[in-house]
Design a protein around this nucleic acid. Structure first.
Lengths: 238, 238
DNA sequence: CTCGCAGTTTAACCTATGTTGGCCTTTGAA
DNA sequence: TTCAAAGGCCAACATAGGTTAAACTGCGAG
């Protein structure tokens, strides 16, 4: 069971029919996770790759005293513990919403990568893009105001969800709480709430009950100093 | 010319004699960079891998208004544009000190990776560790005080330089200005200076003229909430 | 229904860190 | 030797964002 995986790979590289078939033939047992459940935990040395079929997930580290930093989000079609192929997990990945996850044995994945160099390239490219995203977050946390950071995150998720067809009209399902948002951006919940109201007040977006609507994409991009090139997507939405 | 590259790879994977020889046989033209010179620039689509032979380098993004975020440091033996194998650069890498860099043609690198899977694994592991480092920086910028962040960075660089034999006694050459430090940690120079003085005042370290001396490793680790496991090194220094 | 919980919103107050601007020190080029 | 530039340091003041605590809202479970 491989869900949107092929499409995601094709965002980042051209595949032959044989490549596509090999990917589609990947074995994988599916398991459902509820929101808040760990998909992989810090310290695990996985023996399968966990592929997100549906729902969202986030990587995070939690310090002893409870402070938490969310380091990235995963959308359907992405493997959320690719590094587990070579390294033990130094952080956890948790389901943000209910999520279905396919467990692909490392042996099967390695065989695929050995036999299909184009697939391997595309997969490493997804990994590299994930790092590019991480770097962009660093810029935000180090050098942008809370206002710009929040706007930027919404831009990013909107662009990514749009790239995989999960935006309809100007709306997408992004079931994140203000607490998650704060932990992703290094802010307090109170301040996140203040800024969110400003963003809404300016008519840039609305965000209620997990549904994000972008009312003014240009305005939101400007507020977030957003430039999609770091996502290395084929086309910038609008 | 391949410098410490073999040793760096062996920090992250076991190589056969044949692997080692193949790495050592890599072609590469050497070029010297002065401090502040770009080794690769944003927008480049490299056709060689740039391997640091000596000196330090840093990755960074610079926003239009001059705000800058440093996203990582590179030590000798590391390739500073590995992602250039698959993607265009979305940021620049600049020499922190005078640095010698070997330019290895992508074709040669690809041939090596195809023919020597253990080398490929080790190399990807270095890349994954670099991401782990980036994630740890995110935790710092989002959730740690300036004091802890600065201590943490010194811990990290000390541990990394130690791992490659560049620490003597408790001293290492880390020729960074307070401006660089600020840009790496998302702080103002003034505040960096304040905190540095606190760190010195508490006898944890001294840092003058590019020379870092750690006086109290345990104390510094505690101040930075530092736990080296994210570096995935074979052994924690002391 | 209604209880309880998770999430959101407010308000009052606080502090870590930023800003500005000036001076001091070191270094290295002329 | 002296000068300029880069880096370091310092003080006064400003503010973005944190903290605490309490109320409000919506919703699923029983």
């Amino acid at each position: 069971m491989v869900g949107r995986f092929v499409e995601t790979l094709e965002l980042y590289g051209r595949l032959s029919d044989a490549d596509r078939e090999a990917v589609a033939a990947l074995p994988g047992a599916v398991r459902r996770f509820e929101a808040g459940e760990d998909i992989v935990s810090e310290g695990d040395a996985p023996s399968q790759c966990r592929l997100l079929l549906s729902g969202l997930a986030f990587r995070h580290k939690t310090l002893r005293d409870g402070r938490r930093q969310i380091m990235s989000f995963h959308v359907p079609g992405e493997i959320c513990d690719l590094e587990g192929l070579l390294l033990a997990m130094d952080h956890s990945v948790t389901a943000l919403s209910r999520a279905d996850v396919s467990f692909i044995p490392h042996a099967a994945m390695e065989a695929l990568l050995d036999g299909h160099p184009q697939v391997a390239k595309a997969l490493w490219r997804t990994e590299l893009v994930e790092n590019a995203v991480a770097r962009e977050w660093m810029v935000g946390m180090g050098r942008r105001s809370a206002y710009a950071r929040i706007a930027h995150l919404f831009c990013e998720m909107y662009a990514r969800l749009r790239a995989i067809g999960l935006v309809e009209g100007a709306r997408c399902w992004f079931p994140i709480t203000q607490t998650h948002l704060s932990d992703a951006l290094g802010l307090s919940v109170v301040h996140t709430n203040r800024v969110l109201q400003a963003l809404r007040g300016e008519g840039l977006l609305s965000f209620r009950g997990g549904m994000l609507t972008v009312h003014d994409w240009q305005g939101l991009k400007a507020a977030g100093e957003f430039d999609a090139s770091y996502l290395h997507l084929k086309a910038d939405p609008v």
